[in-house]
Design a protein around this nucleic acid. Structure first.
Lengths: 225, 225
DNA sequence: GTAGGTTAAAAAATCGATTATCTTGTCTAA
DNA sequence: TTAGACAAGATAATCGATTTTTTAACCTAC
């Protein structure tokens, strides 16, 4: 069972790729302040790589949207804005809703098993001492599994990208255990509705789920400013 | 009045960016064969740049999806497939339809003027001796203008990316003047419906437009294989 | 006091050379 | 004959140094 996760175990080939992955996590996880200009030499030390692989990673991240590149004046972390958060959330509603409906139409029994497994792992990480980073990974994995059999590579790609950018807002502040519990509850309900192949109800719940997440993210953004 | 278009006149800052733009055009325009492995040293000569800026451009293109990067074995041009063409076209239907409806709801009178202008320029380029590359640019510009006031930066970004990838298929073969005329006719009808703010009819026409383009692209793909 | 100009320091971008990895062809042993 | 081992050449990735451009500090003239 090889699902090719770029998790800790992977040697991850080139220095470029390693830095890319690491930087991506750090940017999504809010380890840099929005708007900040990146000091390349500092990054070189921080990630223990030379200039060339570092710059290649930065270029990839810029093309992905997690950095902005200004000709002749390096890279900076994109600013956050209410407008962008609204935009991203709106797009998530459209695209993940679409993907979920298709996934429910296409998903086979292997998908059902994967889904149950992903939900279970997520719950486990939640009950046990929350290691944060681990929960984040399982959470991403759960949502990925949910829409995986939607049949569109491009749709999945866009959703992934939106998630990364959404998380820049969601992960701004400290944990909010109360709301998280509510959202976690929805994860299980989503699995149930998916197994029952109730596309309509599942989509409605997904809409609500995204909307609640949006409210969390918005709160954090407003507190943060 | 600086509208910062990266058109011909712009010196385009860094070598990286210049190569990126150039390579992107060449990849979309079918100047490389799908599946081909890129010989970096050859590219260095072809685009008259050193290794570092070239590699940075390649990394950006890979993140954008116009190249695939295999660790330790360089870059190659992505293969084409019927499945991907179907996927891209389906996504275009969803996303451009959505964008057009929103643009019609939001667009102001400046938009109307821009739209008329873009359509007119496109027609002009079409009547005059078709310089190919020029028509392509105006065509892209027209579709961009059409959906521009949709209000979602992310939606526009995804549409742009889908267009680029769609064009890898559409531009495989030689020109097909008969069908192009039909498609050009639709451009003008789209403008009319947009100005009349008839969202429903406009979306239907857009669906048809994308579907016809899809058929052209599919034909070319099949002839090409 | 401020706009404009000059220059030194800092940072970004690029180059040329080196190192690591893959690929190919050849040889050997079963 | 062929699977595997090995070496040589080709290619990718990375490093260290250089060049170019921006930034910041200072000065001068009005």
């Amino acid at each position: 069972m090889n699902n090719s996760l770029p998790t800790s175990a992977t040697p991850a080939g080139t220095a470029s790729s390693r830095v890319f992955d690491h930087l991506r996590k750090d940017l999504v996880g809010g380890r840099f302040v929005a708007g900040e200009k990146l000091a390349i030499n500092a990054l070189k030390d921080r990630y223990q790589v030379g200039l060339s692989p570092l710059r290649e990673a930065l270029n990839r991240l810029a093309a992905y949207g997690l950095l902005v590149q200004e000709n002749q004046r390096g890279f900076r972390v994109p600013k956050l804005s209410r407008d962008e958060l609204d935009d991203i959330s709106q797009m998530r509603l459209e695209m993940e809703g679409m993907a979920l409906e298709r996934a429910i139409a296409n998903g086979d029994s292997l998908w059902e098993a994967d889904l149950l497994a992903a939900a279970h792992r997520l719950k486990r990480a939640d009950i046990s001492l929350d290691k944060g980073e681990e929960w984040e990974h399982l959470h991403t994995q759960f949502h990925r599994t949910l829409v995986a059999p939607c049949g569109s590579v491009w749709l999945l790609r866009f959703i992934e990208q939106l998630h990364d950018h959404f998380d820049r807002y969601r992960r701004l502040g400290p944990k909010m255990p109360t709301i998280r519990q509510e959202l976690d509850e929805q994860h299980h309900q989503l699995v149930e509705l998916a197994l029952q192949r109730d596309a309509k109800a599942a989509r409605e719940l997904m809409d609500d789920h995204i909307h609640k997440s949006y409210e969390v993210a918005l709160k954090r953004y407003q507190d943060h400013v």
